[in-house]
Design a protein around this nucleic acid. Sequence first.
DNA 1: CTGTTAGCGCGTTCAG
DNA 2: CTGAACGCGCTAACAG
Lengths: 334, 334
Amino acid sequence: MTARPITLADVAREAGTSASTASRALSGRGYVAPHVKKRLLATADRLGYVPNLSARTLKQRTSRVVGVVVSDLGNQFYAALAAGIEQTLREANYQMLLLGDNSDVAQELSGVRMFLSMRAPGVIMTPASNTAADLLVARGLPVVEVDRRLATSSCDAVVIDNEQGGRAAVEHLIQLGHTRIALLMARTTWTTDAGRLQGYRAALTGAGMRVDRRLIVKFATHAADTVKRIELLLDEQQPTAIFAANNQLAEQAWHVLRRRKLSIPRDISLVAFDDVPWMGMVQPAITAVAQPTFEMGRRAALLLLRRLEDPTCGRTVEVLEPRLVTRGSTGGKR
Amino acid sequence: MTARPITLADVAREAGTSASTASRALSGRGYVAPHVKKRLLATADRLGYVPNLSARTLKQRTSRVVGVVVSDLGNQFYAALAAGIEQTLREANYQMLLLGDNSDVAQELSGVRMFLSMRAPGVIMTPASNTAADLLVARGLPVVEVDRRLATSSCDAVVIDNEQGGRAAVEHLIQLGHTRIALLMARTTWTTDAGRLQGYRAALTGAGMRVDRRLIVKFATHAADTVKRIELLLDEQQPTAIFAANNQLAEQAWHVLRRRKLSIPRDISLVAFDDVPWMGMVQPAITAVAQPTFEMGRRAALLLLRRLEDPTCGRTVEVLEPRLVTRGSTGGKR
DNA sequence: CTGTTAGCGCGTTCAG
DNA sequence: CTGAACGCGCTAACAG
């Protein structure tokens, strides 16, 4: 009983016109007599006509479905980013096709291949590597990078000032009297981590303190030994404060501290980069570098839309400002 | 410099064969001499050939992109659901096209229209209304409902035993000695809320207590006055325990309690339906009815895959069991 | 303003 | 095993 879907030709025949006329009437462009158009619209509606997007895309050689790939759909940071993108695209009558790549280069590449296959007009991504973005650019597809920049080829981007954010976080700790400040960061080539590290160093040297490499720990994503290495850090280096460079690491660190029954901030202070809801709910609440996440998504979408309008327009890299939200997890040195 | 994408014909010409042969070689089905196939694969790779999905879909009259629509991409419950779906579909070599409808019927309908347009082979959804699912079913598209069931037409589904979950939560409170137990639920026609309400009633009447309607408050999604109405409830009814029928309401209720500096569970107990990460992190941690969210997504995908294999197979409705996780937010009556 | 014609890129006959 | 021919559904160009 899987009835054949209604085609444009069906609608045209039923309304007594040619397919071209029906096409013009339903797609809204091209001349067509008002009363004919009205009749066409009515019969299309009556028959339950749904245009075949594949045929349209094939003909026009482009679609209105823009590809979006983020690192982790379950992470609220990326979810908010996607929400900002989606809303903006929808307002411009584009569709978002959302994919998660789990920070995996192979998955990212396969997703990007699919976008190519679907003749997406452009792609917005939080890149996991440079290869996927470069591939797209080489194919002539507009790409906007969000959150971080990895492409070697030039493309539009929306990022946060990571160095400033990192510096603000660490300066805050220094002002409170801390000298043994640990940095938990992801082991990546991402500009986010590089910037936050730079901010960390800048804050320390700016205060005339030296950088102790043993206090900087880098973690592979989803590594099984993350917790163990945080515990090792606590045991061997006895930091009085921790700066976690992303919300995941902050969460892991927080769990470790709590399991050890360390009092925050009396025994140890904690600052996170990226402010997600739980940080305002736990006791004490976590001091964090907040990012305008939704806005970043919105801007990225706007950048893409602009380039779709005018492919030759100059390249833009927007750098937004983070904001330090001081809460209870940071306090004077014990 | 937007070079024309490489087509199958280009590959064929370059390799000195016909397009048909190239098609057979690259799609993997149909006879083709091993050495020719090898050559074809090599040139396709060299040229960077990416098949045009629109053309393929147009020809085959179906695609491998299954549509998935959930209520709220920002809610971790739905994110986990989507993750389970995505993983399972990918293993079966299908693509997930993920959409959020913000519990809005119009958005749901427009999303579903797009799936129809794209000739999706099937759709998985947490329905916001019955219209979208019914539309799909009427068009002959396999639909799987997850989390709740709304379609009037029959379709496969994966749900949780909401009544049992609700009963377990409320029985737990009753055992602790509570008699004034408030219920916070969404004002919907959803089976989830209906089931949880039924569980609430069953627990009360089962314990020989009567149901006080003033203790049951229904909230529209994203209503601006949610907080105010929770406060009103506290003021006028003075419940000793609250059962929040979803994670959003639990979060709102939690914020109200905290702002009022009510001690949990000494002044008031709180139980949530649906266990999300923050509930295990706040102090005290929240007692919750946990759902096997990822697994629900996985099962839904499996149901769809089975039906794609065999469209005539019998209808299946899977009912999974929730599990009450007892934590610190519930305690004896003050 | 409308209909005819042609072709987007692919997979599927069906001869050879 | 291979190639020629055709058509999926739609829209752009063109002639009327």
